[in-house]
């Protein structure tokens, strides 16, 4: 869906960071910022909420732990009890390596899958490129045109060191 966005181009990470702080201070929602490398502190400045990813990992890890442990318990006690070296059927220490490995396996794979899902990344996805320079040396801030007064915003962004501010009709929703 195409929409009008105010697109501001910056030439260094510090400027885009300070501009973000100023824009957020004016209660204007920033749609997104496209940078060639991760800018430290930008997430906090934009007020992006922390990802739910750690909780997904925790949940998947716990699931893996419970699954692996209960499966071994079922196999070695109920389904197919075998005597290993005279040890009791319910030998917790021997369950631990598999429990640990499956916790890590499920936790790690689910984390990767959830990361891709949360960020809507999939094979063949077209990257959102406003200006090819955003992958090299430019920092681009996109703000929904309806959410701010364009003239005021342009002045503010120019003051903060934006080299170019213009309104473009783009589809950024993918």
């Amino acid at each position: 869906m195409k929409k009008d966005y105010v697109i501001a181009t910056f030439e260094c990470d510090e400027k885009v960071l300070h501009a973000t702080e100023k824009v957020v201070a004016k209660n204007i929602d920033i749609y997104d910022i496209y940078t060639p490398f991760p800018v430290h502190g930008l997430d906090e400045a934009m007020g992006i909420k922390r990802s739910i990813l750690p909780y997904v990992t925790l949940l998947a890890g716990l699931t893996g732990m419970i699954l692996a442990f209960s499966f071994q318990m079922w196999v070695f006690n109920i389904s197919w009890p075998v005597n290993f070296g005279g040890k009791p059927f319910m030998s917790v220490p021997s369950f631990l390596p598999i429990t640990f490995e499956f916790t890590v396996l499920l936790g790690a794979h689910t984390t990767v899958a959830a990361f891709l899902a949360i960020n809507k990344l999939f094979p063949g996805k077209q990257p959102t490129i406003i200006d090819p320079a955003q992958t090299e040396d430019k920092f681009i801030m996109a703000i929904d045109k309806e959410k701010a007064n364009v003239d005021d915003l342009t002045n503010l962004l120019k003051e903060q060191g934006a080299v170019q501010v213009e309104v473009q009709n783009l589809d950024l929703s993918i």
Binding site: G85, G86, K87, P93, S94, L96, P97
Partner: peptide, 12 residues
């Protein structure tokens, strides 16, 4: 710690 314990416990 577990590496040391587990191998000794298992070999018995």
């Amino acid at each position: 710690w577990l590496s040391q314990f587990l191998l000794i416990w298992y070999a018995n």
